[in-house]
């Protein structure tokens, strides 16, 4: 393995730390870890794990010289061995262009924020972020799933019935108690799960409307593989919503390409 040609992109988000190693424009390793309380250590472990995937070149003593690390996400400034830090807006755009060439809109639903980006040839034209409130974020979805006693994966399964009831509160804290009330009032978990997903999708759609939606549109971030969310977004936006098996790594890929 020629370590000198390898670039590492690390997307250190609020919930998960995602990483890819890229060589000549191809992904040669990837890994995800919960960010935990120490983003620096998590990023270091992530990098080591990815290097091991490539072979024995990486010793446990640290990062081999010649590998350039580019960091993004909220923890980007906490990674001392990164050559530079680039914002997640730019990285998600570049990563999305890699995953879906020609992409014009990116919606990223992350752990503590959600964002909509309008782009052309991987270059950002406009963006909107919701990052001061948990409404419509991955955290909101996680908390709602926990309230219903299911995992995110199981929640996605509940959505297959297509049933839904309306949540009147957008606030994550109030929605939490509303879920309890709805379940107590005899609503099925399928209906409540549908309501939760619709709430997330409508927030994301509102953000997207402010940047002007162009097609194709790619959903990125850790929730992109929830089929129910993708469908709900498509309904709210009235257009096709695409995902990629690597959607979760869009930020990390974009970082490696920066």
């Amino acid at each position: 393995m020629n370590a000198s040609a390898i670039v590492a992109g690390i997307d250190c988000g609020s919930a998960a730390c995602k990483g890819v190693l890229m060589q000549d424009g191809a992904i040669v390793a990837k890994a995800v870890k919960p960010t935990g309380w120490n983003p620096r250590e998590t990023a270091e472990e992530l990098l080591r794990e990815m290097l091991l995937q490539c072979g024995p070149a990486a010793g446990p003593e640290g990062i081999p010289g010649g590998i350039t690390v580019i960091a993004t996400g909220y923890g980007r400034v906490a990674i001392p061995f990164a050559a530079r830090a680039v914002t997640e807006i730019t990285c998600h755009s570049r990563g999305a262009e890699y995953l879906l060439p020609g992409v014009r809109t990116v919606i990223d639903i992350g752990g503590q924020d959600s964002k909509a980006i309008s782009l052309h040839n991987g270059k950002v034209l406009a963006f909107q972020m919701n990052d001061k409130c948990a409404a419509g974020t991955g955290r909101f979805l996680e908390m709602s799933a926990a309230r219903m006693g299911v995992t995110l994966r199981e929640l996605d399964g509940l959505l297959e019935s297509g049933e839904s009831c309306r949540l009147s509160s957008m606030c994550a804290v109030f929605a939490d108690s509303e879920i309890v009330s709805l379940l107590a009032a005899g609503k099925s978990r399928q209906e409540v799960a549908g309501g939760v997903i619709d709430a997330v999708a409508s927030r994301a759609a509102a953000l997207a409307a402010r940047v002007e939606v162009g097609l194709p549109l790619l959903l990125t971030g850790g929730l992109a593989d929830l089929e129910g969310l993708r469908k709900a977004l498509a309904v709210q936006l009235g257009c096709q919503v695409k995902t990629s098996p690597l959607s979760r790594f869009a930020g990390a890929i974009g970082a490696a390409l920066s």
Binding site: T87, T90, L125, M129
Partner: peptide
């Protein structure tokens, strides 16, 4: 900082 940074990168 994230917004301003992304804007300047644009």
């Amino acid at each position: 900082a994230t917004r301003a940074g992304a804007f300047l990168e644009m």
